[in-house]
């Protein structure tokens, strides 16, 4: 495991003497404000979303359903030892930290735990905006191995946005106790991105996770965003039609089908990104990677 960088950027910002036991919710100031994100995103996407790499080489976003051990993975990667509770929704403020691995510095941003990116809550908006406009170098999706079926919808949604994904199949120790085995190689093939089995509480699988993160972060040609074909022919036609127009308007946007889907659903955040031209900036990603 990489040693944590001894810099002021490591770990959640100090809470001052705001309160003693708020190991759980220290940061009131740096959380992306709902609503404000989109606007500031238009000017300088990465900085506005708190994803400015600063003196780090790569930026990682940590996503996942609530209560999958996301915070434990975060602590394990950054070497922080903050208490992590066993209940959903405990990460109220966004934590960030850093570590170094293989000579490169990584900045890691913990996203709120969400079940989807369908924009039904502030948390989902924040996560969606960071993933779409923040363009992190790697998205680590933490998945509960004992509840794979309930966790996969989020993975699939993130995969539709980006190919720079590593899936951390966490809690495999617990799954084993319950008699559940997950075929990670099959899952890797289905999702088209690395799937690493971990038991973050015991530190198992972390070397593999770090290696996978490094590989995706430096990949010249990351996997393309996932294309999910819809069984409903009318919907599929509409998506294909609109995606073509999204590409015509914003050439080089990597996830035009996903954008089209969101527009068909009337996602207000994506609509304003179209109006303000923020989407166009996503095209730059491809040039940079190529």
């Amino acid at each position: 495991m990489g040693a944590p960088l001894p810099s002021p950027g490591v770990g959640p910002p100090p809470a001052g003497d705001a309160c003693g036991s708020c190991a759980l919710a220290p940061d009131a100031t740096r959380r992306a404000k709902p609503g404000g994100t989109k606007r500031s995103g238009a000017a300088a996407p990465k900085a506005g979303l708190g994803l400015d790499p600063g003196r780090y080489d790569h930026v990682i976003a940590l996503a996942g359903n609530p209560n999958t051990g996301k915070s434990t993975v975060f602590n394990a990667l950054t070497g922080l030892r903050q208490h992590v509770g066993n209940w959903a929704g405990k990460t109220v403020a966004r934590a960030e930290g850093g570590f170094s691995y293989g000579g490169a510095g990584y900045r890691i941003v913990d996203l709120p735990g969400t079940y989807s990116l369908l924009s039904t809550s502030t948390d989902e908006d924040v996560a969606r905006d960071v993933l779409l406009f923040g363009r992190p170098d790697v998205v680590v999706v933490v998945v509960d191995a004992t509840r794979l079926e309930r966790n996969l919808p989020l993975v699939l949604q993130i995969r539709q946005i980006t190919g720079r994904v590593v899936v951390a199949l966490n809690l495999v120790d617990e799954a084993r106790r319950h008699g559940i085995t997950v075929d990670t190689r099959h899952l890797t093939r289905e999702l088209g991105v690395p799937v690493v089995a971990t038991a973050a509480r015991r530190g198992q699988g972390l070397p593999d996770l770090l290696a996978a993160i490094a590989q995706v972060a430096t990949a010249e040609d990351p996997p393309k965003p996932l294309r999910l074909v819809h069984r409903d022919p009318a919907l599929e036609r509409a998506v294909a039609d609109l995606a073509t127009q999204v590409e015509a308007r914003f050439p080089g946007v990597p996830n035009s089908r996903w954008v089209a889907l969101r527009l068909l659903e009337g996602d207000a955040g994506i609509e304003s990104a179209v109006r303000e031209g923020t989407l166009g900036e996503l095209a730059g990603d491809l040039e940079r990677a190529g």
């Binding site: 079926e149 996969l152 008699g179 085995t181 075929d183 990670t184 099959h186 289905e190």
Partner: peptide, 8 residues
């Protein structure tokens, strides 16, 4: 995907 990957 879950069905084909999980063995219970």
């Amino acid at each position: 995907i879950a069905e084909t990957s999980v063995d219970r």
